[in-house]
Amino acid sequence: MYYKLKAITSLRSLDIKINAIQHIGIPVTDLKRSKTFYERLGFANVMQATFDEKGEPGTCVMMKRDNMIMELYELPESGLNEIRSRSNGHIDHVAFDVEDIEVAYNSIKEAGFNIIEPEPVFLQFWERGCKYFNITGPDGERLEFNQIL
């Protein structure tokens, strides 16, 4: 059986320096339980911060082991039903580490990808913060481009 692929963007490769997968984001329903689970696998909590989710505070923890980072985040109570109702897994996004978020954003925009945010978003994560933006892939998967400042 043959499938016809629909052209989504230009076939040329973008000139963006992607260093590696930066982290994998997982929404969790019990942050304490999830932290303990990943600690048992040898991960350590290297960053914890709150974020705003529709006017309510959520909590994000970055768990690191060697060069792997798992982002565990707990939404406020009002957002937990969405997480609990998922039946096909809980990986929310894959994040790519980029050297220059503005260059990456402009290149992605110029190439015609579907960008979710109108501009790179700053978060007070890590020591000096980070900036990120997301695109959606052909099956709706979310790919994040992230620069730790």
Rank of each mutant, 00 (worst) to 15 (best):
M1C: 14
Y2A: 07
K4I: 13
K4P: 04
K6D: 11
A7V: 08
I8W: 14
T9G: 03
S10R: 02
L11K: 11
D15F: 07
I16G: 10
I16F: 10
N19R: 01
I21V: 15
I21W: 15
I21P: 09
V28R: 03
V28I: 10
L31H: 12
L31S: 07
K35M: 04
K35S: 00
T36H: 08
Y38K: 01
R40H: 02
N45E: 14
V46C: 04
A49I: 08
F51A: 04
D52C: 00
G55H: 10
P57Q: 04
T59G: 08
K64T: 08
K64H: 03
R65G: 06
R65L: 13
N67D: 08
M68S: 14
M68Q: 14
E71P: 03
L72E: 08
Y73G: 09
Y73I: 10
E74R: 08
L75H: 13
L75S: 12
S78H: 10
S78D: 12
G79D: 05
L80E: 15
N81T: 09
E82N: 12
E82M: 13
I83E: 01
S85E: 14
S85T: 10
R86S: 01
N88M: 10
I91E: 01
H93V: 07
H93F: 12
F96H: 12
D97E: 11
V98H: 09
V98F: 08
D100Q: 04
D100N: 14
D100I: 10
D100S: 08
D100P: 05
I101Q: 06
V103N: 05
A104G: 11
Y105L: 06
Y105S: 01
S107G: 03
K109W: 11
E110H: 06
A111F: 09
G112N: 09
G112H: 11
I115W: 14
I116D: 13
P118C: 06
P120Q: 13
L123W: 13
F125A: 07
F125D: 00
W126C: 11
W126K: 07
E127Q: 14
R128P: 00
R128C: 01
G129I: 06
K131V: 05
F133K: 00
F133L: 06
I135V: 12
G137C: 15
G137K: 10
R142L: 15
R142C: 14
E144W: 04
Q147W: 11
I148L: 02
L149K: 03
